[in-house]
Write a protein that binds this DNA or RNA. Structure first.
Length: 145
DNA sequence: TAGGCCATCTGGTCCT
DNA sequence: AGGACCAGATGGCCTA
């Protein structure tokens, strides 16, 4: 019994017409199987992508959002969040550098007015600093663009 | 009912 | 050759 090469795209022409029919139907069957396998792989890939989005949603702030963020919103929020954290880090570094400078040069001052961290200052202003810094809302997305 | 969001299928392209 | 990735098409579900 002759076997067909599934890799060949052209139908194999044989004196007996039987193989042509059989080969093409086998090839069709193989193609269908490969398509189904590819569909399953694609489904798994997208599911993996969605679990990644879910994990991202968990670590991104959603203040005032009872509805879950869409994928686009999640990405935009993550971007804003990272930018906010970066800014906070930079500010913290700047403040600690200032503190060092002050402690070197102004030792005779008693620190209250100089040694305040932003968080403490903001708390004194009535609103938590971190909340003010990170309170991003979907309507702020344009800022990140 | 229109519009937004999503899942799935599908064919094309690139990479190993 | 086969898998991963991507983008377009399509249909379902939900909400204003």
């Amino acid at each position: 019994m002759k076997s067909c090469k599934a890799s060949s795209l052209e139908p194999v022409v044989e004196p007996g017409a039987g193989c042509v029919v059989k080969c093409s139907s086998e090839r069709l069957e193989n193609a269908a199987k490969r398509r189904l396998a590819a569909n399953a792989r694609e489904r798994r890939r997208m599911q993996g992508l969605n679990t990644a989005f879910d994990r991202l949603r968990k670590v991104v702030p959603q203040w005032g959002q009872d509805k879950k963020l869409s994928k686009y919103e999640t990405l935009q929020m993550a971007l804003s969040y990272i930018m906010a954290l970066t800014r906070i880090l930079a500010e913290a570094e700047r403040f600690s550098a200032e503190r060092e400078w002050l402690s070197l040069h102004c030792e005779h001052f008693h620190g209250d007015s100089y040694h305040r961290y932003p968080a403490q200052k903001a708390a004194a202003d009535g609103e938590p600093y971190a909340h003010r810094a990170l309170s991003y809302h979907p309507e702020h997305f344009q800022i990140a663009n």
